[in-house]
Design a protein around this nucleic acid. Sequence first.
DNA 1: AAAAATTAATTAATATGTTAACTAAGTTAT
DNA 2: ATAACTTAGTTAACATATTAATTAATTTTT
Lengths: 141, 141
Amino acid sequence: MQPIKTDRALPLALLRARETVMSPIRKVLQAHDVTDQQWRVLRVLHENGLMDAKELAKSACVLAPSLTRIIKHLEQSNMLTRRVDVKDGRRILLQALPLGTQLIESVTPEVQVIYQGLSDKYGAQKMSDLLDLLHDVVELN
Amino acid sequence: MQPIKTDRALPLALLRARETVMSPIRKVLQAHDVTDQQWRVLRVLHENGLMDAKELAKSACVLAPSLTRIIKHLEQSNMLTRRVDVKDGRRILLQALPLGTQLIESVTPEVQVIYQGLSDKYGAQKMSDLLDLLHDVVELN
DNA sequence: AAAAATTAATTAATATGTTAACTAAGTTAT
DNA sequence: ATAACTTAGTTAACATATTAATTAATTTTT
């Protein structure tokens, strides 16, 4: 049984593409002292308002143990608040704080520029097609 | 400046798609006591024969420090050999050993089944289109 | 040829990924 | 109502990601 050429292996292709896109963005985030995971978590939270930890973990594509640590970090930086759900004592409710919103608002324009440049080179239509195809992959679950 | 909805953010979309695909594959790898990074490194090395560490790191999408540790691990398991390049004393030459090849040959069929099932559900043509689009993203560099 | 600059690999330090084990809260079954 | 089960979150342990600093070998400059 011949293995699929690594060139056409989907997981590696996804990883390489992600690295290409993230590499310049990561430099921006680094200049603002955020890791890309912290950025992801904060963005998703900001977009959705109030969320419990499980939702957030799933949406931001972060595992629960990682989220625990990321939250601890972001809480210490006053980027978000963390409180136990009164209706269900197991759940943790999270919400972005002004400092977190402020970070997003200052980083977003810089990231946008990079993303726009990428999209221009790649082609807006192709980018849209790619996003649709990726969305369909996730739907397979 | 409104941030792009996280739904249409390329890095997160790539990550989510990768998680969807890797999740079942990871279980197979786990049953054979290999991490997916070790698997990636070993596969690329097996495919290309003799490689130096830098090439391997780039192809397998692994950073140099990670590769150093992965190699150490795979070397102790007799999966590959490691030797200094005679022509350039800085370079490390790597090659798969029979035990490594054997691992690949025993894991590949199981992974293939998963991948095939995925491809059937997703559509072979779409899969091919997706791989092409991903390849083009990497070409942007 | 010796000094300066470059390159490949490793080591160090911190953050995250990953699975497993654990704790606490809630739900279901008897 | 209590025991069994399930669920959410945390902690633990190990592997990897990421950047920075270090070491050793090679190449370029002077």
